[in-house]
Design a protein around this nucleic acid. Structure first.
Lengths: 225, 225
DNA sequence: CCACAATTCATACGTTCGTTTGAATCATAA
DNA sequence: TTATGATTCAAACGAACGTATGAATTGTGG
């Protein structure tokens, strides 16, 4: 029996969809744009993926599976090296966010395109996309939260969760907004500090994240509660 | 001549549009949903605003005009009080982000709904929305950047712009994702630390932002330029 | 009260959307 | 070569989209 699987059409659709979803969002991208730019027939998406919803889920799964497994591997190694001791917070942060950012240098894994798509989608309006991402992220998030709890035993857990949240936001936005920023800020910054210098973005962002994570705890107003 | 202006229909459309754009995004919200929930005729939007594009611009303008003027007023006052001396960075950050967050307590100014809409829209895919926001923000952004340059004379300007960018992201995401976070983290945190406690979010976020802003400068790899 | 502008309304226009269909083409195993 | 399943294709479907129209209704100044 012939059960081949033409991966060429599939991959070309996924690549184009990834780029268009990044540029115009889920609702803003039509099947006709995708199939048109991919040079395949309109019906190909429904044939290979079933529906537009399944398509974007596959767009994410293709990249996220590797990313989150890699994050787990890195954290595994860090915890093994620490031998029972808590892992340094900066190393945990790098395992999560650094691994993500270093994906951008790897075009075979989506590079900047997927990173920016992911950054945008964390505030995506579509309900089913948020639910899907939440499910995909659940295990790895819990794991990293636990690691941070152990690494920062003196910081209230609620505070750690909040700051993890803040870090996620800073990172998403730093990635997703790289060209929106150009519009907003109109910065006259020397060439070598341009947004494209990804190798400088990583240490920059990492300094900011660690600074925020280790900031003095907030003093709540006496009126609080 | 009768040039009345029925503000009731206009306002009701704006309120509903604000909420629906927040929940489902620009492309994900139809004119029929808006007019239906607002209890007005389908043609009312085109009559009062001209088009869907003009409608969302008015949704933003209605809130942003006051917000950015208030930010300027606060910064004016801070600089006057400093009398020529640079203003403390934490005060500048509070003038920008604190003023934004305190809007959420003011339902007459949109409250949380507008805040979350704004948070989401900073990574909005639609080209004309990004362009519109960039234009609306240009003046106030330049002003605050200048204030930070003076407040942190030893920090390279490029670094400050980056960190301002990171702060924007952390704040946007903290606001926009308040219920997406519930999905992702599934945190078992005591009642009083719930997301709804906005009065605690402000000092929490502010500590994080200041910590990030004042973090040690990043060390670039020897390989980098 | 009348005249006229402002507003509301039901309805329709043309387009684009995601999806489906059934035939045509391709590739492979027997 | 032939049979069979995998894939591609052109065409069409009904639904929903943003917008436009012209008549009906409302409100107000003269």
């Amino acid at each position: 029996m012939a059960e081949v699987r033409n991966t060429d059409t599939r991959e070309r659709i996924l690549d184009v969809a990834e780029r268009l979803f990044m540029a115009h969002g889920y609702d803003g991208t039509s099947m006709r744009q995708i199939t048109g730019e991919a040079g395949v027939n309109l019906a190909a998406v429904n044939y290979h993926f079933g529906s537009k919803e399944s398509l974007i889920q596959e767009v994410f799964r293709r990249r996220l599976d590797w990313l989150n497994e890699e994050r787990m591997r890195v954290l595994d190694r860090l915890e093994a090296e620490a031998g029972g001791q808590p892992v340094k917070p900066s190393l945990i942060v790098d395992a999560f966010f650094g691994t993500l950012l270093r994906m951008a240098e790897d075009d075979a894994r989506g590079g900047m395109t997927f990173l920016r798509l992911l950054g945008r989608t964390l505030t995506e309006p579509s309900e089913f996309i948020r639910a899907f991402l939440a499910h995909e992220y659940k295990v790895v998030m819990d794991r990293f939260k636990e690691a941070l709890f152990r690494a920062l035993p003196d910081v209230p857990k609620a505070e750690i969760v909040w700051r993890f949240h803040f870090m996620l936001g800073a990172t998403s936005y730093a990635i997703a907004g790289t060209d929106a920023l150009r519009l907003v800020t109109d910065w006259q910054i020397e060439e070598e500090d341009s947004v494209d210098r990804l190798d400088r973005l990583v240490p920059r962002l990492m300094s900011f994240l660690i600074g925020g994570l280790r900031a003095p705890l907030p003093q709540f107003d006496q009126s609080g509660r």
